[in-house]
Each structure stands twice: as C-alpha cells, then as structure tokens.
Design a protein around this nucleic acid. Structure first.
Length: 640
RNA sequence: GCCGAUGUAGCUCAACGGUAGAGCAGCUGAUUUGUAAUCAGCUGGUUGGAGGUUCAAAUCCUCUCAUCGGCUCCA
C-alpha cells in the first residue's frame, strides 16, 4: 500500500504505510503514549485507535487529559454499563447512552421494573467484573438492512427507531464482551482501561427528550482511570453540597421557603441586607450611567398581554385573577409596560436613547417539578432595563452595556463569557436592520477585546442577542445576563415612535437587558460562589465586638458605638460566655471581623482583630480598624 | 406537568405494627473566662395533610401537598 503522511499537532510530518492504525502511530511515538492513548483525532474527527488510516491527515493521539479522550472513555463506560444491565436484567430495551460533561448515562426501558439503589450497586459490581476481563471494543460496519435485521432479532424498538433516521447509510456497530450496540463510536481500546466506577443516580427521562414520548429510566454514572480521580470527583461533589445555597441560606438566616408559597422565598432580615446592598450597588451604577428608574404595575389586564403576544404564547406561565368579570394577570415580564412610559410623551430623536431601569417583581407559573431553591422560583425580582434608541445608537449602547456587565461581574470575582446569537429562520423585522444590528453587536464585543462564541440562528425572533454566562469559584457556569435587541416586539406591537430630524415618524429599537438576571438567582449563585463567606460590603453582620468578661462590657459597648456611628453593621456579644465559645459561634456565622476586647485593649483603647477564616490578625488602634474595614467596604474588596 | 426518592422537635437524625427518642438550638441557674463548643436542669412533636386497613399505624394501603435528583422548560 502507498505511504501516507500524518501531521502531528506540533506540525511535524511523519510517513507511514497506508492502513496504519492509531495504535501503531502512538507506539511509534512512545510506549508510554501507547499505554495512555484512548483514541485518535484524524482531521478533527475522533476515531478508534484500531481503525486504519489510509490517507494523509492531521492526527492527534487523545489521552484522558483531552476532552475527546474523556468522551470516548465515558462513552465506552456507558456501553460497559449497558452490558452489565443486559446481563442482570435480560430483555431490557436500550435507548441512547452518550457521554456528558461529567460522566455518562444510558436510557433504558425495563418494562415494569423500577431500578432501586440496590440494583445500581449490583450493576456497578458487574461493571467492575466485566472491566477486569479487559475485552476489546470492536467496530463493525454493516449495511442498513443487516443492522435492522440484527436489532429486529434482538427486539430493540428504540434502536430500530434510531435506524429509521439513518436509512441508506453504512451503520456501525460496536461489540464488547456479549454486548452489541448501534453506535457511531469512537471507543477506547478495551474495557480494562476503566478502573474506577461509580453509578450516581437513576432518573426519568423522556425518549428523545420529548415529553410526549415514553419515559425511560436514565442511569447516570462516572468512571475514572484511577481511584484517586474518582475520590477527587466525589470530594468536589461534596464541596458543591457544602456550598448549597439552600443549606447556607437556612444556616445563615438569609431566606427560607415554606409549603405555603412554593417557589417564593421569605427573605429574613439578614438575607434582606444582601438584597438591599445589591440594589444599592445596582442603583448607584445605573445612576452614573444615566438610567432613569421606573416602576410599573404588577397586576394588569389581560389586554396588555394580548397586545404583546404573551397571551398566545406565554399564558400557561401566567398567574391570572378575575375581578368584576375582567381578567387580570400578575406580570411575568416588565417589557410591555415599559412602553407605556415611553409613550407617555411624544419623543424626539434628541430624547434618545432613553434608558428605563426597573427592579420589577415578576410572577411566572413555573412547572412544579422545575422549582429549585433560589435558582428557579415563581416570584422573580428582576434587575431589568429597557433602552429605547435609534438604530444608529445601537453600537454605542451595546458598548456601554458590555462595560457595565464586565464591571459588575468583576466586583464579585465572577468570570463572564459571551455568546452572540444571530438571526433565526423565523425572524421578523427588516433584514437590513438585522445585519446592521448583528454587525454592531460584533463590533462592540471586538472593541472591548471580548472573545465570544457565535451561536448561529439562535437569536430571538425579534432580534439578535448577547447572552453572558459566568463561572463561579468552583468552575460552574451560570447563565445570568442577557442583552437582547428588539425591532419588533415592543417597537412594532406597541407602535413606538420618535420624531426624526426630518420631521418623519420613526421606530426606535428596544434593548432588553438584565445583569443579575434575577436577585433571587443571583443571590443563590453568589451564596455558593462565596460559600457563604460574603465580602464585607455584603455581609449581613460586618463585625462583632466580643468583650472577654463582664468587666469589659462597658468598653465593648463603647467600641460597638464607635463602629456603629461609622456606619458599620456591628453587633455586641455581651453574653457571659467564654471567649472561645463566642468566637466559635460567630465564626460559624461567617462574620468577617471579630473584635476581642479585654483588659489590655481597654487600657490601650485598642481592639484585637480576628478575621473570619484567617484568625487573629493582631491588635489595632480603633481608628486603624475603622479605616481598614471602611476601605474594604467602599472598595467592595473580596477578602475570603 | 412527567419518572423516582424523601417528609419525625427550630436544625441534623433515630425509632420500621405495640407508650415517639438523641445531639445541637432555645429557656433557667451556676460559671467571669484571651482567639473554634463550661456545667447542670427544664421546655419542646395530632410523625406534612386527608382518608383507609388493624385490637393497635410514624411504620401498611389510597389520595393530596411540599422538597430533592433528573426529564421538559427556563432568569
């Protein structure tokens, strides 16, 4: 066979005989690499190591560290799990079993049998056993007819349904041990690579993600090449649990939920302080940037929603009440009402842009099963704004918004990432305007040196948008802010106009934007992000004065008074308890500063400062401490 | 809404057909303490709710509400 040229990631080119396998390529580089290799990338496509390469190509050997390697590893793990399930529960029908970001799952139909945690353990044990056999994953190409015949014989209706969508194509099957699956692959060389296995949970999932279809049982699992990596993963899961805002919210007296109003928090005094600080921060930033705050009714007649189109498309999510034969609804969005503020006066081109901000309380009747702590509530407080501008002002407005958003997240130590979504097929509005707007969004992102992911055709039907995700302290991504252009929904439906320079009536462009997304969700996110150790400016109690004995209460009260008049949220713990006891208690409450005062401090007019999580940071003059903490608060420093 | 699990004192959990219990918290008293828990006593529950089975139900059954993990949806 002819020789072929393979290009490595470093650009070097090596010649091989045609039909060389990825495995051979890995071996030719080093035996160590061959041991670690899981798959090979051939011209950007991930292949099995055993598959023969017969043309010139760019190649990269994939190991566990590579995303492609992990995916193949977990994909193969899913097959291993399926084999264990089939062995323990013959007759099980298989749906799909792909890898996911952290592990893999397989959707299965077991008829009447419901999997118990005990079953999971048994499956896990069997997987360990099968993995040890160290059998190869074998790829086989079959004609469509042969594949159909195979799964007909096996009696796997879901696989047959999948095959329906692959008519005329060459079908690949993968075998390992006694299990055969319809699968594109790729897979790792053999089951022996899978060393550490943990089945995590079983949950219902609709076949093909469609709620009209039958619900299958989905088993989630994860595997690793070493036990240490599994332990580390499980530790990270524990860490996430430790940070859970539902747990911390209760422990730190921030908020609680009650059966009496599912999906709506009761804000406790301490949580309300965080809420108010965020509002204060938001308002001061928006004031600097020439926003005008408005407030619109919560309860409005359904006529508004008929005009906005929500009545047709969003009605099942709206709470309605009837009064005197008129149907009202609690607003699920602020936007339609903001147009009433716009239309309050005839607007001139000179008035634009108009930036109306609104901290609006919304109600959305989310499905009961969708609720989850602060992350998904029915009563939402949104940091909303609607900017009405001329088309030629889009660029500068987006530019300002990007500056605002970047500034906001930097204060919290959250890393933003940006997605730009463009014109979908069902778009409404002038295509030229779309093009112009998309170009403006791009330009604004580029001007700010922001890398972004382009999501083609993912915009709303009324305009393109920039979605912003943030990454928290433990690497999780959250969708929060959104900047949406709107040529249609508000401007057209509500017939917004401004008088242009030439006296003609023109349509403004509306920009919908939120930064926190919602106060509820954002507070949930930062509670987990900071693990409850809020920066001093947000901390419900910023400092607490701890007199050592009753003899120091008077001085303690003096210190407390000074801090209070400096504007701090400070408490005095004058209980007759041991100092260790008090310290422990306030440490658990995650208060940033403790001021221990006893005989020495009283005589020298000082305070002994203990910082949360850091311990004793020494004795300071009172004024020194006040300066320190006040600077920390005004600069919104992150100290934990 | 769908699938599965769970619901016992303010919190974390025990009791799994036979008188509901512990730790923490709370209250009372003693203790006067130097950087993560002083001691003693006391209070606290129609076992989420409604029905049913049984001589007897926290425990078994039915319905319902809520929560959790997913699916769908989404700020």
């Amino acid at each position: 066979m002819a020789t072929i040229k393979l290009t490595y990631p470093d650009g070097s080119v090596k010649e091989f005989e045609g039909g060389v396998s990825g495995n051979d390529v890995a071996k030719s580089i080093s035996s160590g690499l061959a041991r670690e290799a899981l798959a090979i990338e051939v011209d950007g496509e991930v292949w099995d190591l055993s598959r023969k390469i017969d043309h010139d190509a760019g190649v990269k050997i994939l190991k566990w560290q590579d995303a492609g390697g992990k995916y193949a590893y977990w994909h193969s793990s899913a097959h291993l799990m399926a084999e264990a399930v089939e062995c323990l529960f013959p007759g099980t029908k298989f749906g799909i079993g792909p890898p996911v970001d952290h592990g893999f799952y397989y959707d299965i139909d077991m008829g009447d049998h419901t999997l118990s945690p005990d079953d999971l353990l048994k499956i896990e044990e069997r997987m360990v056993e099968f993995a040890k056999r160290d059998v190869s994953y074998v790829r086989e190409e079959k004609s469509w007819d042969e594949a159909v015949a195979y799964f007909k014989k096996k009696g796997d209706p879901y696989k047959l349904e999948l095959l329906d969508g692959l008519k005329g194509e060459t079908i690949t099957l993968y075998h390992q041990g006694n299990f055969t699956d319809l699968c594109y692959g790729p897979h790792i060389p053999s089951t022996g690579r899978i060393k550490s296995i943990k089945l995590l949970s079983v949950a219902g999932a609709y076949w093909r993600g469609n709620e009209k279809n039958k619900m299958l049982q989905r088993i989630y699992g994860i595997t690793f090449p070493t036990k240490e990596e599994l332990d580390e993963y499980l530790f990270r899961v524990e860490e996430a649990k430790r940070r859970d805002h539902r747990k911390l919210g209760k422990e730190l007296d921030l908020f609680v939920f009650h059966d009496i109003s599912p999906g709506a928090p009761f804000w406790l005094p301490k949580g309300m302080i965080i809420f108010r600080e965020l509002e204060k921060f938001l308002r001061s930033e928006l004031d600097k940037r020439d926003y005008q705050e408005i407030n619109t009714p919560i309860l409005v007649k359904k006529d508004l929603w008929q005009q906005s189109g929500h009545w047709d498309h969003y009605r099942e999510n709206m709470f309605c009440v009837e009064n005197d034969e008129t149907i009202y609804s609690l607003k699920p969005m602020n936007c339609p009402e903001s147009t009433y503020v716009y239309r309050h006066r005839l607007r001139s081109y000179k008035d634009l842009p108009l930036r109306f901000s609104e901290i609006g309380r919304l109600h959305r009747n989310e499905l009961s099963g969708a609720l989850g702590g602060m992350f998904r509530v029915r009563q939402i407080t949104m940091d909303d704004a609607h900017i009405f501008c001329r088309p030629d002002q889009i660029l500068s407005e987006i530019d300002r918004l990007i500056e605002l958003v970047t500034h906001f997240y930097s204060i919290f130590g959250l890393k933003p990432s940006y997605n730009l979504s463009t014109r979908p097929d069902n778009a409404m509005g002038d295509p030229t305007l779309w093009e112009q707007a998309e170009a403006s969004l791009k330009k604004a992102l580029e001007k700010n040196h922001i890398k972004y992911t382009l999501k083609l055709k993912d915009g709303a039907f009324y305009g393109p948008k920039i979605d912003i995700q943030i990454e928290d302290a433990i690497g999780r991504q959250w969708q929060v802010a959104t900047i949406q252009l709107d040529f249609v929904m508000l401007p057209e439906r509500f017939q917004l106009e401004y008088i242009a320079e030439d006296g003609s009536r023109q349509r403004p462009v509306a920009i919908h934007r939120a930064i926190f997304g919602s106060f509820e969700r954002f507070i949930g996110i930062i509670t987990e992000h900071f693990a409850g150790n809020f920066p001093t400016w947000l901390a419900p109690v910023q400092a607490v004065v701890l007199p050592i004995t009753d003899a120091h209460q008077e001085y303690g009260a003096h210190v407390h008074g000074i801090l209070k008049s400096a504007g701090l949220r400070v408490e005095l713990d004058d209980r007759s308890e041991k100092i260790n006891y008090k310290i422990r208690e306030w440490e658990v409450k995650k208060v940033p500063y403790m001021l221990v005062v006893g005989e020495k401090e009283k005589n020298n007019q000082t305070v002994s400062v203990r910082q949360h999580t850091k311990g004793d940071i020494g004795v300071m003059a009172m004024s020194e401490f006040v300066d320190k903490i006040c600077r920390e608060i005004s600069e919104k420093l992150i100290t934990s």
